[in-house]
């Protein structure tokens, strides 16, 4: 059964095209634990951004978002409190990483002109509806496939594996109580 996914509303941060995984999760940060590594996201692209981002914010990017490595960048976004990703085009490996981490991600045409930094964005991945509360504009795009909604609705694949008995009980308990974010 797929738990329902509610529409998400948050403050938008708008970035450009072809943001690669080295710009979000550089190799030297891979030597750190996830919470520390998260402080290096976009360190060169937008220095100081990780100090400004607040829980519930939404990240908006352009074309070819996330080209590069399999590094679990979306997990770093979750550590920063990012509630959802919007991009004009996702690299498919990056998109899968977001879905599998339980982070809602929606492809929205012309997203970087539809939203500006600081606008209040709303998206509903179950219907494909998205809106800019600041400008009052509202549009609709393709919703996510059911299989993908199922993963996101369950909070990612790890809670699903925990429920299916693949993980040790203590770990599964932590994950299913919602306290296991750091395990991702």
């Amino acid at each position: 059964m797929t738990p329902s996914i509610q529409p998400i509303t948050g403050r938008a941060w708008v970035f450009g095209d072809a943001l690669n995984t080295d710009a979000m999760y550089p190799a030297h940060a891979m030597k750190l634990d996830l919470a520390e590594a998260a402080k290096h996201v976009f360190a060169q692209v937008r220095p100081g951004w990780t100090d400004l981002v607040r829980p519930g914010d939404i990240l908006v990017a352009g074309k070819n978002f996330g080209v590069g490595s399999s590094r679990p960048v979306p997990t770093l976004f979750q550590h920063l409190g990012i509630a959802a990703l919007i991009a004009e085009e996702f690299n498919s490996l990056f998109l899968r990483n977001a879905i599998n981490a339980g982070l809602p991600a929606l492809t929205v045409p012309r997203a970087t002109t539809f939203f500006s930094d600081g606008d209040i964005a709303t998206l509903d991945v179950t219907t494909g509806r998205y809106a800019n509360q600041t400008t009052g504009a509202e549009e609709r795009t393709a919703p996510l496939p059911d299989l993908v909604l199922d993963i996101i609705g369950n909070g990612g694949v790890l809670p699903m594996l925990a429920r299916a008995g693949y993980l040790p009980e203590a770990v599964a308990g932590l994950l299913l109580s919602g306290a296991g974010g750091g395990l991702r």
């Binding site: 399999s70 679990p72 990612g156 694949v157």
Partner: peptide
């Protein structure tokens, strides 16, 4: 190539 969480699954 797939992310570590998906590979785990």
């Amino acid at each position: 190539g797939l992310g570590p969480v998906e590979m785990y699954a």
